[in-house]
């Protein structure tokens, strides 16, 4: 697996300290959707699992699209598009880090752009309320994956510059997995985490971490040229199959 995957994972992991306060509300809504009698740990886990599975699936899908757009862009432009894209992605990450640290709110501008997509998708979410079955929780997750969110957009920027649908999807998968630990923390642990996440020092620390990733992405933007070609070998997995099973005329 490659470095951008881990970068995305770290964005998810660090950035989700922000989600825990915000998404706590959605998680609360999920819990309320559970039947009173059956609020067993198992059913709670099932709901959270499917909700998050839906959410991550949406991310992966968005990542694949971003990767596809990136791939098309690279095809029709000079090779220089990729390094510049990486530079921009790095800058977005720096902005995100500053935002999480509470210093600079520029990322909200990108979020605002995402609102247009969200306005169309959000009404679908009403169908899955109350989220009283795992299937509905899954649907809800699918929809809420599109919630305008600076974190998601910075990870998507990485997908975009990967210029491959598969790579883009993998990056978003990494991001989604990164957000899991925080969102899966439940009960008393969640309360402690929220407190910790709101602590200014913690926010600065997390912000600084993401800024560092952003700086790293910017610095290496021009040095990891040709990097993109390495993925072709990865794609070979599917092709092993095709060799043995493709039936030629």
């Amino acid at each position: 697996m490659e470095l951008t995957f881990y970068t995305a994972l770290m964005i998810g992991l660090l950035g989700s300290t922000h989600c825990i306060g915000m998404c706590g509300g959605i998680v609360g809504a999920l819990n309320a959707g559970l039947p009173r009698s059956g609020q067993s740990l198992l059913s709670q886990v099932a709901h959270h699992f499917t909700y998050n599975a839906g959410r991550i699936l949406s991310y992966v899908f968005a990542g694949a699209i971003a990767g596809l757009v990136g791939a098309l862009a690279t095809k029709f432009s000079l090779d220089t598009a990729v390094p510049f894209g990486r530079l921009i992605a790095g800058l977005i990450m720096i902005a995100l880090g500053l935002y999480l640290a509470g210093l600079w709110h520029a990322v909200t501008a990108i979020e605002k752009a995402g609102l247009h997509i969200w306005r169309r998708i959000q009404p679908l979410g009403q169908r899955f309320l109350p989220a009283n079955t795992p299937a509905r929780a899954f649907g809800l997750g699918l929809v809420w994956g599109w919630l305008p969110c600076g974190l998601v957009y910075s990870a998507l920027a990485l997908s975009l510059v990967s210029a491959s649908p598969r790579q883009g999807a993998v990056i978003m998968l990494g991001f989604g997995l990164g957000t899991l630990p925080m969102l899966f923390a439940m009960g008393g642990v969640a309360g402690q985490l929220v407190k910790l996440a709101r602590h200014p020092a913690m926010r600065r620390l997390v912000g600084a971490g993401i800024v560092m990733f952003g700086v790293y992405t910017c610095v290496t933007a021009f040095s990891v040229h040709g990097h993109n070609h390495a993925h072709v070998d990865h794609n070979g997995l599917g092709q092993d199959m095709s060799e043995t099973h493709t039936k030629s005329n």
């Binding site: 915000m22 509300g25 959605i26 609360g28 605002k112 609102l115 919630l147 305008p148 969110c149 600076g150």
Partner: peptide, 17 residues
């Protein structure tokens, strides 16, 4: 703080608070 939070509030109303 962000549009995400606002949308969560819009969708679930005061209960979410």
């Amino acid at each position: 703080c962000c549009f995400g939070c606002r949308e969560v509030y819009r969708c679930f109303g005061d209960d979410v608070l």
